[in-house]
Design a protein around this nucleic acid. Structure first.
Lengths: 376, 376
DNA sequence: CTGTTAGCGCATTCAC
DNA sequence: GTGAATGCGCTAACAG
């Protein structure tokens, strides 16, 4: 480990601490309020009223003119003085609602995802919800256990960002009847609300940009085959090319990583040496594509142009700056959160799909096609 | 909004949905198992035993030879068949432990933080804990409400990544007696466990690197003044320079953003036009510094070198690739999580501080100092 | 307007 | 080895 211990205090048990022992109240640190957090009962006793009255006051039901001004104030004062904080566990058990929402992403550490998380988190927080986050490494196995854990904590709903075409976990969730909103990736086959990038429009923008630069030999680096955006982006890629009387090759990455982008692009470049442009299904794949181009002894954008998708943070600082299709991550996340909140409030509402509008951002990784090399 | 509605299904209430109405069981979708998740009692009835027996079995207390092999198997079978899942809310209410940990970061969407979050999340998850995440925008006001929310859900412990020198929220947490582990930023004044980057060693590495390149006029772009790493990094910066018989200027950014890095660097460059190198307290500030250098009509690294800190993801792809001090985010996060778990298990244990070892990563943003311009 | 009552689902002490 | 009883802290009828 690249970690050094400063003030050591016992190495701590070697591994996996079993069941932690009961949280004993430190020492006889007695005195005033330390010992145990105050409960409704404590407040009630102190204020000389019944527990339920306190509950009502603290839940602002006093607004309905149901509580004496005086009682109300006294209770609030006592609560404040005692440092009362509602135990949401108890409340959740009673009401059946936890005000917790789970969010499942492929990787928390992924930049693009992080923006979505932020957008969703802000909205949820503003509505009094907490956000439980889990990474699955885009592995369905992990997804299942993570989701299971979220159901375990009785999350009121889930934001699911790892949908696949035949997603067993998703099927299960729907089956359980728990509110779910998909983001980023859809599941055409199911009636579930989703907030997705407008893959078709975005891809069209990108391909047309390449065409307008004179590119005729374009290849596409797709993502995993059973992900909705992969299908949509590839479909549109071929469609637009066809409209222009062209045909392009493509390959699929197993994961949305630079390594995979590199691998697929390398193969594609070998197979079609006349390639002058590559459209990647996402920015990380695009980065890998640029690596592959260089590795092949060519340069980007002089020899071959590259377009990404998503507009991940710092894309403008890369070398070359990445031409890509921008999707507002923050918006996507907050929309998904709002939709989920609405679904939780009204489980019966019909599924809705929102598409986040794409925007082409032209930067340095694309340039006019070179005069055909082979004809020289 | 850059969002379009596809299948619209009612715009949904304009804003803030008050208290969602009770989750009514959809329709008479009755039939078998849909309606309500099975409880211990359901399993007990179905298996013809008492609730407590089921509880014991499902908590593996059978291991102690306290349950008949037969009963054990039967119960497990029934539980599986009914799709029983433990209600952790109820369990938490009973045991006083939620198996939930809160994590407070300045910004979820920050790359460096994201890696830490990932490391922590993995460890926590492996130990059966869930992670609640909150962004504070590095604003103490937000921190308070976020932390309050976390205490509300009765988190068993907190990973606190926004500590300031006089941190009221932190003081409050300690007061409450809730297990806390700081990460990234420490609070010297308190006896709290922490996992921090080794600021001193890291800064020394960076400054010595610049000195070895022949730089003599070095400035430092520090972070917010009341953050431990700012203090440590600045202190070491001055110390190392002094050892070399030099003195450097510095400025403080209000936040760790590119904009602030730009602002501070611009000021510094104006004040000390002979500057040939800048040491930034973190990578984002470094990025801003590079912007400022260009804006001033100079170039990096030719005219002035820049060193960052943290080694954020993709730093190697920037233009120029960033020379920086690497800190393993993943390790830092997982160490913090482990420490917290240990603290939760044994609240009495003495505070420990772990320092994550830094490593200088030399890339393209630093170069040998030019011959002194003024002497030409 | 406020007090009483009754659990939410589970873990745990005590009997047998 | 298993059942019975109790209560975690809270909200939600229902009385008064």
């Amino acid at each position: 480990m690249a970690l050094r211990r400063k003030k050591s205090g016992g190495i701590g048990r070697p591994e996996g601490f079993g069941y932690p022992r009961p949280v004993s109240t430190p020492g006889g640190n007695g005195e005033a309020r330390t010992g145990k957090p105050p409960t409704l009962r404590d407040v009630a006793r102190e204020a000389g009223v019944h527990v339920s009255t306190v509950s009502r006051v603290l839940n602002d039901q006093a607004a309905a003119g149901r509580i004496t001004q005086d009682t109300d104030e006294r209770i609030r004062e006592v609560a404040r003085r005692l440092g009362y904080r509602r135990n949401s566990i108890a409340r959740a058990l009673r009401t059946g609602r936890t005000l917790v929402v789970g969010m499942v992403v492929p990787d928390v550490a992924n930049l693009y995802q992080a923006g979505i998380t932020r957008g969703a988190g802000d909205v949820l927080y503003a509505h009094g919800y907490s956000l439980i986050l889990a990474s699955t490494d885009d592995d369905p196995k992990h997804a299942e256990s993570q989701v299971s854990a979220m159901l375990g904590v009785q999350a009121d709903g889930l934001l699911y960002g790892v949908a696949r075409e035949d997603d067993a976990v998703l099927a299960w969730l729907v089956d359980e009847g728990i509110p779910v909103v998909l983001f980023n990736r859809g599941a055409e086959s199911r009636e579930i609300s989703a907030v997705l990038p407008d893959d078709r429009t975005g891809t069209r923008l990108a391909v047309e940009h390449l065409l307008s630069l004179g590119h005729r030999n374009i290849v596409h680096v797709g993502g995993p085959e059973d992900v909705s955006s992969t299908v949509n982006r590839l479909g549109t890629f071929e469609e637009v090319l066809q409209e222009a009387g062209l045909r392009g090759s493509h390959g699929f990455a197993h994961r949305h990583t630079e390594e995979e982008g590199y691998r697929v692009t390398s193969d594609l470049l070998e197979e079609r040496p006349d390639t002058t442009a590559v459209l990647a299904a996402n920015d990380r794949l695009a980065l890998g594509a640029i690596d592959a181009i260089r590795e092949a002894g060519r340069s980007c954008p002089e020899d071959v142009s590259v377009v990404g998708f998503n507009d991940m943070p710092y894309g403008d600082r890369f070398s070359p700056p990445l031409t890509t299709v921008h999707i507002s991550q923050n918006n996507l996340g907050s929309m998904a959160a709002k939709l989920l909140l609405e679904t939780i409030a009204d489980p019966g509402r019909p599924a809705e799909t929102h598409l986040a509008a794409p925007e082409l951002v032209v930067r340095g990784s694309t340039a006019p096609a070179q005069t055909d090399r082979s004809s020289l």
